[in-house]
Computed example of a mutant assay.
Amino acid sequence: MRVDLFDFDLPPENIALRPARPRDSARMLLVEGAESGSLVDRHVHDLPGILRPGDVLVFNDTRVIPAQLEGRRGEAKIGATLHKRIDLRRWQAFVRNAKRLRPSDRIEFPAGVTALAEERLDDGSWVLFFEGEEPVEVLLERAGRMPLPPYIAGKRETDEADRSDYQTMFAEKDGAVAAPTASLHFTPELMARLEAAGVKRETLTLHVGAGTFLPVKADDTQDHRMHAEWGSIDAATADRLNAARAAGNRVIAVGTTSLRLLESATGEDNVIRPFEGDTAIFITPGYRFKAIDGLMTNFHLPKSTLFMLVSALMGLERMQAVYRHAISTGYRFYSYGDSSLLIRE
């Protein structure tokens, strides 16, 4: 499909620079029906009264690491955003001012953290080898910043509040360089109310990469290539999700990251299987969903792979109408913005 079909105009004032407080006070647009139906303006804290007993919400338990680094190679300023772990000491990184780098150059970051630029890859990113014996995660906590998306970082400085604001309550496993932002809206109080309402909870892990923010440069979706991200679903979780669906209950992914991993783990027989490894699944209109019945997600960028994904779920014309409503009624967009609940039935 032509990429320009997924374009729309978004006023700058609709872009959220800070999250709602409390988190579950964010607005939520309820969209039921992939072809037609009403659009209902609600709030995230209304979820216990919207979902059914037996519904299963699937969360991503990845934890965002401070993967944004500013350093120097000699007199040259070098910026690095880590986006995928290779091994214990090596990460792939998008590098700013990369023309000043050569293989074997040493980059000096704050707090005595150094890394060697080992090689430039075909996609333009670099392999960085972090020197020393301390775990890389420890080095990043000392020298790095939270990797806020460019549409936020370009408008204000990252600050201490972002260390908690840009982390979900489910964050347990280090490795993401972008938050699974749909889960940012949840609080312990909301989870207790959902449990009391009979709504179930499952978790999986997908370490979100910085590639999620990269623009689609191709003119046609078939020419775009996704960056791979590592994910894992264990056998017990897969079994419970399959049992829920067999019992007629709905599986609702909280965030596009959860959805993409669930679909990667599901065969053509609609059975979810254990999964561990990379996925580069790219979901566009025409895709047949096998694992999920709905999606809770924030509002996405024009011409982004994520807007293509929700258009595949609900239909392009339907999502164009949804976004027109969201923009005209003042919904806040992107990572710190408001939410939507998309139910296919």
Rank of each mutant, 00 (worst) to 15 (best):
V64P: 03
V271W: 09
M28K: 05
F307L: 04
R106A: 15
Q68S: 14
E141I: 08
A93L: 06
F129L: 14
R240I: 04
K77M: 10
L261K: 00
R63H: 10
V177C: 09
G255I: 09
F289G: 01
P11F: 01
T203N: 13
V127C: 09
V56H: 08
G294I: 14
M28G: 09
D219G: 11
T203K: 15
S38I: 12
R240W: 02
G267L: 04
W126A: 03
L190I: 11
T257N: 01
A247M: 15
R21Q: 13
G211S: 01
R245K: 09
S38M: 11
E119A: 12
S335H: 04
M314P: 02
A178R: 04
D269K: 07
P22I: 11
R73S: 06
P53M: 08
L128T: 04
E276G: 11
A93V: 10
G37V: 07
N298C: 08
L121D: 13
V127E: 09
V3G: 03
G294M: 15
R225D: 13
L241P: 06
T256Y: 03
A326D: 03
A210G: 12
P12H: 11
S335N: 07
H185M: 02
A98F: 13
P285K: 00
E189R: 11
Y287M: 01
M308Y: 00
Q68A: 14
R72M: 10
S311W: 04
H207F: 06
E75K: 14
A321F: 10
R142I: 15
T256K: 00
V271P: 13
V40G: 08
S264A: 03
E108R: 12
A16H: 08
R193H: 13
G211F: 00
E263S: 00
T181S: 06
G144Y: 02
M146P: 03
S164V: 14
A182S: 08
E35D: 12
M296V: 15
P149H: 01
L194T: 08
V216H: 00
D165W: 07
R21G: 11
L39F: 02
S125I: 06
R142C: 15
F8P: 04
A236F: 07
A182I: 14
G74H: 00
T181G: 06
L148N: 03
R89S: 12
Y166N: 02
M1C: 06
A171P: 08
G267M: 05
L29P: 06
R142N: 14
I272L: 05
P135D: 10
Y166Q: 02
G330W: 01
S328E: 09
I86G: 04
K173T: 15
E345M: 11
P215G: 05
